[in-house]
């Protein structure tokens, strides 16, 4: 059985590296989550370094669990992820169907559609929050100012002036703070990840049974019914995959949140952990363990699905 050794040896470096990467930091997080560990504490200097003597049991978990900000962060994480998922799947299906036939310039259209996916997240966020969504200097501000100008011009106009003087002045939305920052993040990430959904749905559409489709057309099935009863069931599996892969990526969104609001807007779970890391390591670690649990709920389903097709 000597030829078993060589393959094992070849796999060893990768396995060891990943084992280290998975186990060492995570077990440290686990340990920190059970002790009192606060970086800046003049009153209790013994808590500023990690030690088993500061054992706190589930105290950190309890502390985090009772924080409103923790639940708000979870809520924001879920709102952002669900918003992005819904929009990318809806746009993704629509656009995939739209470009899944031949027309002039299809190659260029594809290239334009895929481009946002390769823009680095930091640039994506800076571009959107400043140049597109800024309430004064961004396109949003310019557009709102333009509309207001037109309306105030119409107020002076004869006949219709009375009607338009009833209209309010529109005011641009500031996306940097509070609730609106989530919407900004949803917008920019949807823009970035719709191409991903389009690519996957398009790949899948190309394997759709054309004969079945032709038969449906001959039977006089409407376009909607063809979509509803043939295309949508065919896309079931790709939709599930798009949803789960994106859920895992977007549960750990960080750069976008940081750039959009610098903490003055809605925080998601990774951002909340990032803030706790500046001081309360115990609580940050407990929150991290909660984040792992949340991600695992999604990951189990995804892995099971991938595992089924793996050895085909």
């Amino acid at each position: 059985m000597a030829n078993r050794t060589v393959p094992r040896l070849l796999q060893t470096p990768a396995v060891v590296l990943l084992l280290f990467w998975m186990l060492v930091p995570l077990s440290m997080t686990l340990f920190f989550s059970f002790i009192r560990y606060v970086l800046n504490n003049l009153r209790r200097p013994e808590w500023t370094s990690p030690s088993i003597e500061n054992w706190r049991g589930f105290g950190n978990y309890q502390y985090v669990w009772n924080q409103d900000s923790f639940w708000l962060a979870i809520q924001n994480s879920l709102i952002i992820v669900c918003g992005i998922l819904f929009l990318t799947v809806a746009f993704g299906i629509a656009i995939a169907i739209l470009i899944n036939r031949n027309f002039p310039g299809r190659g260029i259209v594809r290239v334009m559609l895929i481009s946002p996916f390769f823009v680095m997240p930091a640039v994506n966020a800076v571009l959107w929050i400043n140049m597109l969504l800024d309430p004064v200097l961004g396109l949003q501000g310019i557009a709102v100012a333009g509309i207001n100008d037109i309306i105030s011009g119409l107020r002076e106009a004869p006949l219709v002036g009375g009607f338009f003087s009833l209209w309010p002045e529109f005011s641009p939305i500031s996306f940097r703070g509070a609730q609106a920052s989530s919407y900004a993040v949803i917008m920019m990430v949807t823009w970035q990840w719709t191409p991903f959904a389009v690519l996957i749905f398009m790949t899948s559409l190309q394997s759709e049974d054309q004969q079945q489709k032709e038969a449906a057309v001959l039977d006089g099935a409407s376009a909607w019914n063809q979509f509803r009863f043939l295309t949508l069931p065919h896309l079931g599996r790709p939709i599930a995959i798009v949803v789960m892969i994106q859920a895992i990526f977007h549960l750990s969104l960080y750069a976008e949140i940081e750039i959009v609001s610098r903490g003055s807007g809605n925080k998601n779970l990774p951002y909340y952990i990032g803030e706790l890391v500046n001081n309360n390591i115990g609580a940050a670690s407990a929150t991290g363990i909660f984040a792992v649990i949340l991600a695992n709920i999604v990951a189990i389903f995804l892995l099971r699905m991938i595992g089924k097709t793996l050895m085909e």
């Binding site: 998975m22 060492v24 930091p25 995570l26 440290m28 997080t29 920190f32 895992i248 549960l251 750990s252 960080y254 779970l269 990774p270 952990i273 990032g274 890391v277 390591i281 940050a284 670690s285 991290g288 363990i289 984040a291 792992v292 949340l294 991600a295 695992n296 999604v298 990951a299 995804l302 892995l303």
Partner: peptide, 11 residues
Amino acid sequence: KMLPAAAVLYP
């Protein structure tokens, strides 16, 4: 790959 990065930030 599915481990959230934020969970292991401090370590």
